[in-house]
Nucleic acid binder design. Structure first.
Length: 613
DNA sequence: CGAGTTTGACCTGCGC
DNA sequence: GCGCAGGTCAAACTCG
């Protein structure tokens, strides 16, 4: 996909040429794209990245051009010379594009900085308001500030209790977290609350300036009218949903696995099963049983046309502490949900919503308007989603033949629908083909603090220069400059990096979503084959065996290089610590700071993890 | 025997 | 108002 656009500009190739390039050499093309995207600030990195990668592209060209020459009936000698020229032209145009990308990155960075500042300002303002409110309701405040469990509670949405706590919780939590024993976990989670403090989405009763703004946008834009939610919610969720329309955001995770359900670290009890229309495969309904009052539910259904694809839809907010293994998924879904809502409700400018497909290049970010189409974007999975709920889908399956991303491996595609102010939207993150792409396992570093167990890699989403971020990945993923060390592996890495970079610079809230998603991918890729079949998806009962009373590791480690793919992307979520025996790298599941569910304030100020962490 | 699953009935929202 | 479909309930059943 990216290769197409690049070669277009370089060679002015026709459609036929583009198609060939895309089909035969997109992996190398992705490398090239990554270089362009990441080589934005420092020449040394640019050079380092470009030089070893250029041969790849040339090799790719060599493999492609003869075919094209044959089609144009040119002699071989002329063909080779033209290939040389093409290569030179490509180099030049690539350099030119690098410059453009550099400029773009600068702009994005400036935007990001500005957003961070705005966020900080608004946060301060909100804290002042919150303190005033907390004085008025000191009783409730004391109660809830004394609840330590809230520090590790993840939210897909917000509950009324959460909101109170959010308001009450003083800012200190953000600093305390860094000294917390459970740093890795608490960090993101706490940031989540920090975000929620600045984005009190569930207080229609007590409208603050932010809230009123949000409500306006929701009603006008997304149509997240509270009335509608009130209608659709039922007894258990009434308390929550009445106050929080965003509570109903759903996150679907599509994984390819053969087991009945995927293990996400949480404890579920099946309470129903139904044959949904259009899909002969029954949909199973599960309820979180970690806490009796936990309102979180999930639906599990196999894809009708590809029964190996399992779609798990999460809905609701955990009102209890989560084990690490569960927070991995919870953070992913939460991040995705937050991204969905912030993205779908964001009016414009500087965020992912304004990014065009061309901007994202390797990224595919699908948003479908459920008010118009009730189906997910993937034609091979027709699981319908309620039009009442915005749904984001993390697609962890291999790309389908009909997928527009062809063989891209990390796709977050922005469709025009995204820009069309959908009433109810569905977002799709397509992290494809990681089965065959064991990514180097790194440590996700969401801020200035590195939560690094084995000090193998440092994958920074916050303050590390992108060049380092990329370079680290490249070193790990492709230590050998050999043009074809392991073709299937590289694209995912580079694509993921490109995706991360672009997304991060585009939208801080998306940063969290992407970070969590990357975490998933990395873990999945690393935990796959390599003689660890036990890491593959487990049955529900197996998952239940990991009782929550047992200690959960703070750090989950995975083999960094596994030749074989995995069958279920979520396998790592419940992976026992003992299984991390052969890890050259390790992965710590940090909780990305998730702006809980979007508000207009969050949109305009785009809370940044950089700031929080 | 307790916990979890199955499954038919029931409830609710929505479109016509 | 009616029918459809999604979602939930709860008694019966299964399993360890």
């Amino acid at each position: 996909m990216e290769a197409v656009s690049l070669r277009k500009s370089c060679k002015g190739g026709g459609i036929k040429e583009e198609k060939r390039v895309e089909s035969s050499g997109n992996e190398e093309s992705f490398k090239e794209e990554i270089v362009l995207k990441f080589g934005n600030g420092r020449d040394d990195h640019e050079d380092h990245n470009l030089k070893p990668l250029s041969p790849n592209r040339n090799d790719n060209q060599m493999s492609v051009m003869p075919t094209m020459d044959r089609s144009s009936a040119e002699p071989n000698s002329r063909a080779s010379s033209s290939v040389q020229k093409d290569q030179d032209n490509q180099l030049e145009s690539a350099k030119a594009e690098m410059g453009e990308v550099r400029e773009e990155n600068k702009r994005l960075r400036m935007n990001l900085n500005r957003i961070i500042k705005e966020y900080q300002t608004l946060q301060m303002q909100f804290y002042d308001i919150a303190r005033q409110e907390s004085k008025e309701s000191t009783n409730t405040a004391r109660e809830e500030t004394e609840d330590p469990d809230q520090l590790v509670s993840l939210s897909l949405g917000r509950t009324s209790r959460d909101s109170k706590k959010d308001i009450v919780k003083p800012r200190k939590g953000k600093e305390d977290i860094q000294q917390d024993d459970k740093e890795g976990l608490a960090l993101g989670l706490h940031c989540d609350f920090d975000m929620s403090k600045t984005r009190p989405i569930e207080t229609p009763v007590k409208p603050s300036p932010e809230n009123s703004l949000e409500m306006k946008e929701e009603e006008a834009g997304e149509g997240w009218a509270p009335n509608k939610v009130l209608k659709t919610t039922r007894s258990e969720d009434d308390e929550v949903s009445q106050q929080n329309p965003a509570k109903k955001a759903r996150v679907s995770v599509r994984v390819r696995c053969d087991t009945p359900t995927m293990v996400d670290g949480c404890q579920w009890r099946k309470y129903g099963q139904k044959i949904a229309k259009g899909n002969p495969c029954p949909r199973a309904y599960y309820r979180c049983t970690v806490s009796p009052s936990c309102p979180v539910r999930k639906q599990v259904q196999r894809c009708a046309e590809d029964t190996s694809i399992l779609t798990t839809t999460y809905e609701g907010t955990h009102n209890h502490p989560l084990p690490i293994s569960a927070t991995a998924m919870a953070s992913t879904t939460s991040a995705a949900a937050s991204m969905l809502l912030s993205g779908s409700s964001t009016s414009s400018g500087g965020t992912i919503t304004s990014a065009t497909a061309a901007d994202f290049r390797g990224l595919n970010f699908y948003l479908s308007d459920h008010s118009k189409s009730k189906q997910f974007y993937l034609p091979n999975c027709s699981m319908s989603s309620s039009p009442s709920y915005p749904t984001i889908t993390l697609d962890l399956t291999t790309p389908t033949p009909s997928s527009s991303s062809s063989s891209s491996h990390f796709n977050i595609t922005s469709s025009s629908n995204f820009l069309s102010t959908p009433r109810y939207s569905s977002t799709n993150l397509n992290f494809s083909s990681f089965e065959s792409n064991p990514i180097p396992v790194g440590v996700l570093n969401y801020g200035s603090q590195t939560y690094n167990k084995n000090q193998v890699n440092s994958l920074s989403f916050a303050r590390q220069p992108q060049e380092n971020f990329y370079h680290t990945f490249m070193q790990k993923g492709n230590p050998n400059p050999n043009p074809n060390p392991n073709p299937p592996q590289q694209p995912l890495q580079t694509d993921a990096i490109a995706a991360a970079t672009k997304a991060i610079t585009s939208d801080p809230s998306f940063q969290s979503a992407l970070a969590a998603a990357l975490t998933s991918i990395i873990g999945a890729g690393g935990s796959g084959g390599g003689g660890n079949p036990g890491y593959q998806i487990e049955s529900n009962k197996v998952g239940q065996n990991s009782k929550f009373g047992e200690p959960f590791p703070l750090v989950s480690s995975f083999p960094s290089a596994t030749p074989n793919g995995i069958k279920c992307s979520s396998s790592y979520f419940n992976r026992p610590p003992s299984s991390a025996n052969s890890q050259p790298g390790s992965l710590m599941f940090l909780q990305p700071a998730l702006p809980p569910l979007s508000t207009s304030e969050g949109k305009s100020t785009s809370p940044s993890r950089d700031h929080v962490l």
